[in-house]
């Protein structure tokens, strides 16, 4: 079962190592991890997805909370949160198939951010399934390169995960 947790951490050197080290030492598996600054420069926010049972998830949350540089750990329920991932995908393209690619891009409300005679780079944002879907459909044209950000997530409504 996949779970998403938001972790507010102090923006200090070595904090990412502490978190990833904790996961490897305790045998927890990270599915994806994304990290970036928050509105407060003292803190960063990580979104971590883990694939584990409920008991392991409880341990993940408790063990993370014990780290001195971790300010807050919250589990995000998929039904109550919005989740986004961004991918940029370089696809082989030529005069013949470019219209078809552009059509796909339009259906997925993705964007073409770079064009060359033999390739295009597509930017797509959405939940994991959407990114998976466009990746699948683009495969027929030949994916040359792909970079995904990992998920970021936020609770719907007025509830917040803050330090």
């Amino acid at each position: 079962m996949k779970h998403t947790i938001a972790v507010i951490v102090e923006n200090k050197p070595g904090v990412l190592t502490r978190i990833s080290g904790l996961f490897s030492r305790r045998g927890f598996n990270i599915d994806s991890l994304s990290v970036g600054a928050t509105d407060n420069p003292d803190y960063s926010r990580m979104t971590i997805t883990v694939n584990c049972d409920e008991e392991t998830l409880e341990q993940v949350i408790k063990q993370l909370s014990k780290l001195i540089n971790v300010i807050r750990v919250s589990q995000l329920e998929p039904k109550e949160s919005v989740e986004r991932e961004l991918a940029i995908i370089k696809v082989s393209a030529n005069r013949e198939n470019r219209p078809e690619i552009m059509q796909l891009v339009s259906i997925f409300r993705a964007k073409i951010i770079d064009v060359s005679p033999r390739s295009v780079i597509i930017e797509v944002t959405g939940d994991e399934e959407k990114v998976d879907a466009i990746e699948r459909l683009l495969r027929q044209f030949g994916i040359k390169e792909l970079a995904r950000t990992g998920k970021v997530s936020m609770v719907r409504g007025t509830k917040v995960v803050q330090p």
Binding site: E55, E58, Q59, K62, Q63, S65, K66
Partner: peptide
């Protein structure tokens, strides 16, 4: 005193 010990 360590919540992570409970249920470990």
């Amino acid at each position: 005193v360590d919540p992570a010990e409970i249920g470990k």
